[in-house]
Amino acid sequence: MCKHVLVFMDTTDAAMKKSCKPAMLGRIWQASRRALNLEHSPPHQFACCQWQSGHRPSTLYLTYRWLLFLTVVSIAIASFACQRLPRLYKGPKVELNYFKWFIYFTNWGYMLIALQAGLALAVVHHYRTERNLSMTCEDDVIQIPRRQKTPMLCRMYWLTHNVATDLAFVITLVYWTLVHDPRIHEVNALNLLVHGGNSVVMLCELALTAHPVRAAHALYGAGAGFAYGLFSAFYWAVGGTDRLGLPSIYPSLDWNKPGSAFGFVALCAVVMIFAHGIATFLAILRLRLASRLRPKSPHLDRLALPTH
Rank of each mutant, 00 (worst) to 15 (best):
G197I: 11
P306I: 11
N97Q: 15
V123L: 00
H308K: 03
Y110A: 04
C48M: 08
L62N: 03
K21A: 12
F264I: 04
R294Q: 14
F169Q: 04
F8P: 00
T63F: 13
V213G: 00
F99E: 11
V94H: 01
F99R: 09
D10C: 07
H195Y: 02
T12S: 13
F264L: 09
N37Y: 01
Y110R: 11
I273P: 14
C204Q: 06
Q30V: 14
V271A: 15
N188F: 02
G245H: 00
H276V: 10
L246P: 00
R294F: 09
L173W: 13
V94L: 10
A261K: 07
W101G: 00
V200A: 14
V163N: 02
I278H: 01
M24P: 01
L153P: 02
A47T: 14
R292P: 00
N191Y: 07
R87N: 04
H308D: 13
S291I: 00
Q143S: 10
M1S: 13
N191R: 09
A290E: 08
V270Y: 05
V94W: 04
V163W: 13
A78L: 12
G91W: 09
T280A: 12
D181E: 11
A189V: 12
G196Y: 04
L85A: 03
D140G: 07
A114M: 04
P151H: 11
W158I: 03
L300S: 04
T71S: 15
T150K: 10
G223L: 10
Y110S: 13
Y220P: 08
T12W: 12
